[in-house]
Simulated assay, not measured.
Amino acid sequence: MKIFKNIFLVILMIGALESCVVSKKPNMDFFSNSGYDFKGAKFTSFNVPMLLAKPYIKKALKEDGESEELINLVKKISKIKVLTVENGSKEMLKDYARYLNDNHYEDWATIKHDGDNVNVRVKQTGDAIKNMLITVNSDKELVFVDVKGSFTADDISRMISAVSDK
């Protein structure tokens, strides 16, 4: 019986580590399926293995003195995808925003921090928010974070307030 348990743990760890593979291909719909001409933009993408990331994120938030309420939001996250784009254009960012509007994402907040713009958009069905997209726009680099989970509007508002206060 112990051998089966060990085999299961090994398979689980391989699966978790495999999902953390870094790729030069985009992992988000607009960038990977649109046929859009990105004009020399360079992509780096990866999926964050939540099994490994949640304990690390919680520990970092506790060390930073964040509230228990914000730390509990991490439990509601089921999947995170990150995409960085070098040499992205403002036109590409505008087309991405149009794509999100066409796909029923609502603009919830834009936060300016040290010359960077952070934009939060959510896709809401009734009271449930299953998807949140965070865009960080600096001079020549763009970062897109796709967070899937089960959130309420109150959860997202608390998160935005916590970040805005700092």
Score class of each variant (00 low, 15 high):
residue 63 E to S: 12
residue 38 F to Y: 06
residue 36 Y to C: 02
residue 49 P to M: 11
residue 59 K to S: 04
residue 38 F to C: 00
residue 58 K to Q: 11
residue 48 V to R: 03
residue 65 G to W: 06
residue 45 S to Q: 05
residue 41 A to I: 11
residue 64 D to W: 07
residue 44 T to Q: 11
residue 44 T to C: 09
residue 42 K to S: 13
residue 52 L to K: 01
residue 54 K to D: 07
residue 37 D to S: 11
residue 51 L to V: 06
residue 63 E to D: 13
residue 63 E to Y: 02
residue 35 G to T: 00
residue 43 F to A: 00
residue 33 N to E: 10
residue 57 I to Y: 06
residue 37 D to E: 03
residue 54 K to F: 13
residue 60 A to G: 14
residue 45 S to A: 15
residue 56 Y to V: 15
residue 37 D to M: 02
residue 40 G to N: 08
residue 50 M to Y: 11
residue 64 D to E: 13
residue 48 V to Y: 11
residue 50 M to C: 01
residue 39 K to W: 05
residue 65 G to Y: 07
residue 45 S to P: 08
residue 38 F to E: 01
residue 62 K to W: 04
residue 55 P to I: 08
residue 55 P to H: 05
residue 36 Y to G: 02
residue 55 P to E: 05
residue 38 F to H: 02
residue 42 K to W: 06
residue 44 T to H: 09
residue 62 K to P: 01
residue 41 A to K: 05
residue 45 S to Y: 00
residue 33 N to M: 10
residue 37 D to P: 05
residue 40 G to K: 12
residue 59 K to Y: 07
residue 33 N to Q: 09
residue 46 F to S: 08
residue 46 F to I: 07
residue 46 F to L: 13
residue 58 K to N: 02
residue 44 T to Y: 12
residue 46 F to K: 11
residue 47 N to I: 02
residue 35 G to Q: 05
residue 49 P to F: 10
residue 63 E to G: 07
residue 59 K to M: 12
residue 64 D to G: 11
residue 56 Y to N: 05
residue 58 K to T: 09
